[in-house]
Design a protein around this nucleic acid. Structure first.
Length: 517
DNA sequence: TTCCGACAGTGGGGTCGCAAT
DNA sequence: ATTGCGACCCCACTATCGGAA
């Protein structure tokens, strides 16, 4: 055995151990032990693998390409480097016949893997390792393995936008290497995210002095400009510069030459009302004929934060100071609308601002503590989004068996509304909002109502009513009413209601006049 | 001791691009 | 020309661990 090149079997075993332990501290220790053993050349592979991701990112392999089961090898022989080489070649396959070729290559790889290795590879390729440890736990393990402070490692990962880069530097040069990771124009950082609050009053109550900003329903964008060079990144740091020439032009129109801005990109119609999320997303997703797409659905950037300007890193400044810089750099129409409130006794203006924002066709508001720094890569408690919630009483038509910790439970519900002729029309599915107790209860109840058992679940007599919360209505080509619910989740089972009392498609459409099938 | 922040898991719908049919 | 798959946008919510209060 070559001890200088790690075997995949070792990773597969550690992954299994990590999955089998619930204590996060123990998971961390297991990962740290493995990282300590890894040779420098293996690190760029071992680290992402144990964080449950491929260093190549997604490589066009899903359940179809994984296809049929392959007989496993009896003895482990694959090294992590060999696996990485094979997957790099696989990722490069394209053109006619590529699906067959990818299937062949995956089969070959699986045939060289033992049963345990197959299980691990399957998780990696589908992006579902389910070992209870992803980037954050891996970063903690890396800190433990190298003796670096975990907060420093976390910060470096946010600024590098990549665990792998930080791992390589750390294992090569030790903790002092972390100082090299600074906010740099042209290198995207993980964006700060928001928590939810159920009302403006709740959000302001938690945050005190706060800015209330409109929440636009588009695509998050991070804009880097260095002189004549502009680059645009999504929330997951994908480079989408080539798709949005208008945004590049907007960045070039600003007075400063070096900055990083955070904002939302979306499309407005001729009257200045925001177009639907679906239209904006379609535009941002278009890559082949950008010129035509830009003519039919032009987009605009609307900024709400600035992370860096003229080489000054603003991340640790309070929002109030960052916003002062933003206001200096970015003219009014290219900035998110906002209002300031002084605390819990002052929610009136915030409520009015929310109502006005909704009237103008936007999604809701984000309430932000004005003292808070920019917590890159974190779901900071200092940003709280508030969106209106709609509810409906719908009838369960069928339910699908869950996976993972929901194995053996009827989890994903098919939801129906009443139509004019008395029939039930499916509007979508949901698995969200269920506690373990609700899951157990509905599994038993739906078992009683079961009509037919399929591999995926059961169809049931349409008698169970559920109260569903959702964020809005959107067009659908999949469902018969031509519309579906956005972000549907279960609030409670309504045994007190009969299916005849459920809501109708007609009423649903009437409640959302802006959306037509 | 209790509370709460951070994480991972469990999936939802739409849209685009590309390959297969 | 149409269909199916995979990637990647948007995302809500619960359970759990472990440190903060």
């Amino acid at each position: 055995m070559h001890h200088d090149c790690m075997l995949l079997a070792r990773l597969a075993r550690v992954s299994q151990e990590v999955a089998a332990t619930s204590a996060r501290s123990r998971k961390t220790a297991l990962l740290a032990e493995l990282f300590r053993e890894a040779e420098a050349a293996d690190v760029p592979v071992v680290i992402p693998y144990l964080a449950g991701r491929l260093p190549q990112g997604r490589i066009g392999v899903g359940w179809k390409v994984l296809g049929a089961r392959v007989d496993p090898a009896a003895e482990p022989s694959l090294t992590v480097r060999e696996v990485d080489d094979r997957l790099t070649r696989l990722a490069a396959v394209s053109g006619p016949g590529s699906q067959a070729e990818r299937t062949r290559l995956v089969g070959e790889l699986m045939g060289a893997a033992t049963e345990d290795e197959q299980r691990f590879l399957l998780g990696l390729l589908t992006g579902e390792v389910r070992q209870g440890a992803l980037d954050a736990v891996a970063a903690e393990g890396l800190a433990q393995a190298t003796g670096a402070a975990s907060a420093d490692v976390r910060r470096a990962v946010m600024l590098a936008g990549s665990l792998r880069t930080v791992a390589e530097a750390l294992l090569a040069d030790g903790p002092r290497a972390l100082g090299r990771f600074r906010l740099t124009v042209g290198r995207p950082v993980l964006p700060m995210l928001a928590h939810s609050a159920s009302s403006v009053a709740e959000a302001v109550g938690k945050l005190g002095v706060a800015a209330v900003e409109e929440k636009l329903d588009g695509i998050r964008v991070q804009v880097h400009r260095d002189g004549d060079t502009v680059r645009l990144y999504t929330r997951t740091l994908d480079d989408i510069t080539d798709r949005l020439p208008e945004v590049t032009a907007a960045a070039l129109s600003l007075p400063d030459e070096r900055f990083v801005l955070d904002g939302e990109v979306l499309s407005f119609d001729a009257d200045g009302r925001p177009r639907s999320f679906q239209e904006t997303a379609g535009r941002v997703g278009s890559r082949t004929d950008v010129a035509t797409a830009a003519r039919t659905v032009p987009v605009s950037p609307v900024f709400f934060d600035v992370l860096c300007v003229d080489g000054r890193d603003l991340l640790d400044l309070p929002l109030a100071e960052r916003h002062a810089e933003l206001a200096r750099l970015v003219p009014e129409p290219m900035r998110v609308r906002r209002t300031l409130v002084t605390g819990a006794g002052d929610t009136g203006p915030a409520e009015r601002f929310l109502a006005d924002t909704l009237a103008r066709g936007h999604e809701g508001v984000v309430v932000k503590g004005t003292d808070a720094p920019y917590s890159a890569g974190r779901r900071g408690a200092s940003w709280l989004k508030v969106k209106p919630v709609h509810t409906l009483d719908l009838v369960v038509l069928a339910a699908e068996w869950g996976h993972g910790r929901r194995t053996g439970k009827l989890s994903n519900l098919h939801l129906g509304a009443r139509a004019a002729d008395g029939s039930l029309v499916m509007l979508g599915k949901t698995f969200k909002g269920l506690t373990d107790a609700m899951l157990a209860w509905q599994t038993a109840r739906l078992g009683e109502l079961a009509v037919e058992e399929y591999g995926w679940g059961v169809t049931v007599r349409p008698e169970l009513v559920v109260e569903i919360a959702y964020d809005g209505l959107q067009r659908s080509t999949r469902y018969p009413a031509g519309v579906t619910l956005r972000f549907a989740r279960v609030l409670r089972h309504r045994e007190d209601k009969r299916p005849e009392e459920a809501d109708t498609v007609e009423a649903l459409l009437a409640a959302h006049p802006g959306v037509r099938p």
